[in-house]
């Protein structure tokens, strides 16, 4: 089925895909969650392995940026048949995220 046919005609010319939507929805959701968290539990700076004070939001930024590079690294160095599939790269990102929130 043509995915773009689900969209109204006025948006079809932008050729949106659900994958792009899912990607940005995830980021928007993360930002929303962290905003709510920041309101409910005010952020406090802390110094970790990077020796710089970071708040929860800073750690989210470091996580997202680092994850992007982990995925790029995966697409650059994984064997040719796994390169286009991030199924294994995303768990690495998750481990990285946990490490950032624990140690940075």
């Amino acid at each position: 089925m043509d995915e773009t046919s689900l969209l109204p005609d006025s948006l079809a010319w932008m050729a949106w895909t659900w994958q792009t939507a899912a990607f940005f929805a995830t980021i928007a959701l993360l930002l929303a969650i962290f905003t709510v968290l920041a309101v409910r539990f005010p952020e406090r700076e802390r110094v970790g392995v990077l020796r710089i004070p970071t708040t929860r939001g800073d750690r989210l930024f470091i996580t997202l940026l680092g994850s992007a590079f982990i995925c790029l690294g995966w697409m650059a160095f994984a064997s040719a048949d796994l390169r286009g599939d991030l199924t294994f790269a995303l768990p690495i990102c998750l481990v990285y995220a946990l490490a950032v929130f624990r140690f940075v």
Partner: peptide, 12 residues
Amino acid sequence: LMTVVNYSVQDT
């Protein structure tokens, strides 16, 4: 920016 991400996974 979202458009750029959207284009990066497609061909035209």
